[in-house]
């Protein structure tokens, strides 16, 4: 496990996007000229209206699609990723433990060899009691926890999350937000998080990248300098209100710019 990196821009970059653009079918400009440097331990939110290329940016970083323009550079060798999609995306035929085992299984590790890691990941997301349940037996929030456990089980350097909590109710979402921060602290990874929600982005991130649509592009980057760990107190603080105001304004600019 990596030690949490020191604060500030002294932290080492993990992945860097330089002038990245993506055009679909030769006509649809989904993303234009995006620069982004994710450093060790960053929690970056991509915030913007629908169609502004947030998912496209994430898929580019994940290497699922190739950039039309620009480059994406990983420092320190091969990409080392965990991903969480908007849907839990679990294998319905496999138990919770076997779903979490998947990334390790694909590396050729037997279940017995990594049982402890799987149990640890399930314990981290609070599902230690459900290793043998099937996904259909779980609530939406629990499924999402399994999905997060699966992303974390390899202790990746970077975790990409595409609106993971959008389909959940607010109470569950707040709970998962708290837990996500705690988890990130434990694992010490970098998170790039896509969301529609200003409140979520302010609560979670230390940097918010605000994007606009048609063509998809970055229009502003906001820093949320409140220290971690953040708790319920932060959600009700004046500082939080100030940051959400700033993010909301930026989002309005993004809508107007479209």
């Amino acid at each position: 496990m990596r030690v949490a990196a020191p604060q500030g821009s002294a932290r080492a970059p993990v992945v860097r996007m330089q002038g990245v653009g993506k055009t679909f079918n030769g006509t649809v400009v989904a993303l234009r000229d995006m620069d982004l440097t994710a450093r060790e331990g960053d929690f970056i939110s991509l915030l913007g209206p629908s169609g502004c290329g947030k998912s496209t940016a994430l898929r580019l970083i994940a290497g699922l699609i190739e950039p039309t323009r620009g480059r994406i550079e990983w420092t320190g060798g091969a990409p080392d990723l965990g991903v969480v999609f908007q849907e839990p995306t679990l294998m319905p035929w496999a138990t919770v433990a076997h779903n979490v085992w998947l990334p390790l299984r694909l590396r050729g590790q037997s279940f017995d060899a990594v049982r402890a890691d799987v149990e640890e990941a399930l314990d981290l997301v609070g599902l230690a009691d459900f290793p043998d349940a099937y996904p259909r037996e779980l609530s939406g929030g629990m499924k999402m926890r399994v999905s997060i456990a699966r992303a974390m089980v390899t202790h990746p350097r970077v975790i990409l999350m595409d609106e993971p909590f959008a389909a959940l109710d607010e109470i569950t979402r707040f709970k998962l937000n708290d837990d996500l921060l705690a988890l990130k602290e434990k694992i010490g990874c970098t998170v790039i998080f896509v969301t529609h929600s200003v409140f979520e982005s302010v609560f979670l991130s230390d940097r918010i990248v605000v994007m606009a649509a048609r063509p998809g592009r970055v229009i502003r980057e906001l820093a949320v300098d409140a220290p971690y760990p953040r708790s319920e107190d932060f959600r009700t603080s004046a500082e939080y209100a100030r940051h959400t105001r700033a993010a909301t304004d930026a989002l309005h600019d993004a809508m107007a710019a479209a």
Partner: peptide, 13 residues
């Protein structure tokens, strides 16, 4: 499932 396929690709299956 398409997302699962993406997941397999990301993990280099």
């Amino acid at each position: 499932d398409h997302n699962l396929r993406d997941l397999f690709r990301i993990y280099g299956a």
